[in-house]
């Protein structure tokens, strides 16, 4: 569990706001090991989601270096980043972000198709069945409940068997029971596929399930707690 799969060196993010440049992340350095589950916590506006976006290549760092699976993400252009995400990263959002013009099955098949995977639809269907959505494959997002939409999003993220799962408050829009079920599925996926999971959350009990929790405040790492779950288990 010591191999570093994702590494940030002095990553900074400055966004242009209406009132001038806004420094969102102020030099983050962080290593994530293969198979590790990492929780990112902190108050609103502390930069958790931005950090996650940097890790996924959805946002470009203003300076610093981000390496994932041996690739320097800061050196890749937009399309190279998109290609890199195929099969390597599965991302889950608080608002699910399903494509509204596609059915559940089609949504799950998209990343497989983009990656040129054989039998994309068969694998997508199997993934949905595994998520308990076998009867909802031909439904459009608007016809699904919030919990169901998030399970489709999970299936979509998991279908290409990515090495890294990125989840941005995946239960934020769900009730407690549904949220709990989603988390079971998410951690189950990680355990089944031996993937790395990086999770942004406000929920302490969710963070508590992670191997390591990094606390952010005002764009900086404010502290770290390691393996509490293991301790509790002991």
């Amino acid at each position: 569990m010591n191999e570093t799969i994702l590494s940030l060196e002095d990553a900074r993010l400055v966004l242009e706001g209406n009132a001038g440049p806004l420094e969102i992340l102020k030099g983050i350095s962080l290593d994530v090991a293969r198979g590790e589950s990492l929780g990112l916590v902190g108050p609103s506006g502390s930069g958790k989601s931005s950090l996650l976006m940097l890790m996924g290549g959805l946002e470009r760092a203003t300076s610093g270096r981000i390496t994932a699976l041996g690739h320097d993400l800061t050196a890749l252009d937009e399309d190279a980043l998109a290609r890199f995400r195929r099969g390597n990263m599965g991302i889950v959002f608080q608002s699910f972000h399903l494509i509204p013009t596609m059915t559940a099955l089609e949504n799950v098949a998209v990343p497989l198709e983009l990656a040129g995977a054989a039998n994309a639809f068969g694998r997508a269907a199997a993934e949905l069945v595994a998520m308990g959505l076998g009867a909802r494959m031909d439904h459009y997002p608007a016809q699904l409940s919030g919990g169901e939409q998030q399970r489709v999003a999970l299936a979509r993220a998991a279908a290409p068997r990515p090495a890294i799962f990125l989840a941005d408050e995946p239960t934020g829009n769900l009730d407690a029971a549904t949220g709990e079920a989603i988390m079971e599925l998410l951690f189950g996926l990680r355990d089944r596929h031996g993937a790395t999971l990086i999770l942004v959350t406000h929920a302490p009990e969710l963070a508590a399930r992670c191997d390591r929790v990094v606390r952010l405040a005002d764009g900086c790492i404010a502290g770290e707690d390691r393996a509490r779950r293991v301790k509790v288990a002991e």
């Binding site: 996924g56 959805l58 937009e78 399309d79 998109a82 290609r83 890199f84 995400r85 195929r86 099969g87 991302i91 972000h97 399903l98 494509i99 509204p100 013009t101 998209v110 990343p111 983009l114 990656a115 979509r156 290409p160």
Partner: peptide, 19 residues
């Protein structure tokens, strides 16, 4: 607006700009 959103989601899932 819908297109901006679709493009963002597709890129997240690994689609290039050409696609």
């Amino acid at each position: 607006r819908a297109r901006v959103y679709e493009a963002a989601v597709l890129k997240t899932l690994g689609a290039t700009r050409a696609t």
